[in-house]
């Protein structure tokens, strides 16, 4: 038995090394901006570059729009499917796989081709980019919400609320959404993390986003891209840490889902 535990620790260690070694190497490399000493000079350059702030700001804006519009579109849909057309669930689940199967480059050209001529011309609007991002984020949002809805007794809760006189709006805002808190938070942070670093759509639709900026840096400079890579890692991990932190708060407040104890 002990031998087995030892072996699994060994595998774990190998995995960790495989994962962290390149990260550590990148980090160390990013500190070599000044010859002979380790310094954060590459990070200074990154933060001083007005392009960095501009592109990051733009991507953040797009990400926030994507989160808002995505949630508004997908959350009610998921609830509707759960309550009214559970038979459609496998179909929607299949749809959520499409963004993984269809390369973003195809998606981008499809969007351009469709929305660059009447009746709907959207190519010049950042809304088209947001629309593309919603498609990319759709699996993450839908799956999070779906898992959240599965964890609560949606049908029972909605019937209880209705029998107490609740309208659909009250049901949504007082019962369903508060119990979806964890799911909504993880959907939000996953979407933010994905959209902020997204390259293909932003590049092909020609928007000054953070993804293309990182790619450009990577081509022209040595130490700054390494610093950027570390920064974007920190951002993603920060997001995941925030999910953990906020959902733990929710649990402590007693909003544990599906708790049936005797």
């Amino acid at each position: 038995m002990r031998k087995k535990t030892g072996l699994s620790w060994l595998w774990f260690a190998i995995g960790m090394v495989y994962f962290f070694l390149p990260l550590l190497a990148t980090f160390l490399f990013s500190l070599r901006g000044k010859k002979g000493v380790l310094s954060f000079v590459a990070y200074e350059h990154v933060f001083k570059d007005p392009q960095f702030l501009r592109t990051f700001g733009f991507s953040l804006e797009m990400a926030i729009l994507t989160v808002i519009l995505g949630l508004v579109l997908i959350v009610p849909t998921a609830i509707w499917v759960h309550l009214k057309v559970p038979k459609a669930k496998p179909f929607i689940e299949l749809l959520t796989l499409l963004p993984f199967v269809i390369p973003p480059i195809i998606l981008a050209f499809g969007l351009i081709k469709t929305f660059s001529r009447p009746p709907i011309v959207l190519v010049s609007s950042p809304l088209l980019l947001v629309a593309g991002y919603i498609i990319v984020a759709f699996p993450y949002i839908y799956r999070s919400v779906d898992a959240g809805l599965m964890a609560m007794d949606l049908r029972g809760l909605s019937e209880a609320a209705q029998s107490l006189g609740s309208s659909w709006i009250t049901l949504l805002f007082k019962v369903v959404l508060p119990n979806l808190r964890t799911a909504l938070l993880s959907a939000t942070f996953l979407t933010l993390a994905i959209v902020i670093g997204e390259l293909t759509l932003a590049l092909i639709l020609a928007w000054p986003a953070f993804g293309p900026y990182m790619a450009l840096m990577g081509r022209n400079l040595a130490y700054e891209p390494a610093a950027l890579a570390i920064l974007s890692f920190a951002l993603t991990w920060g997001s995941i840490g925030l999910i953990q932190l906020l959902t733990r708060g929710a649990r402590d407040k007693g909003a544990k889902l599906g708790a049936v104890t005797h």
Binding site: E159, A160, S163, V175, N179, R181, A255, G258
Partner: peptide, 15 residues
Amino acid sequence: RKLGMVFQNYALFPN
């Protein structure tokens, strides 16, 4: 309908 209903699995609002 103003009818009180009690369900098998309680259906209390967990939040």
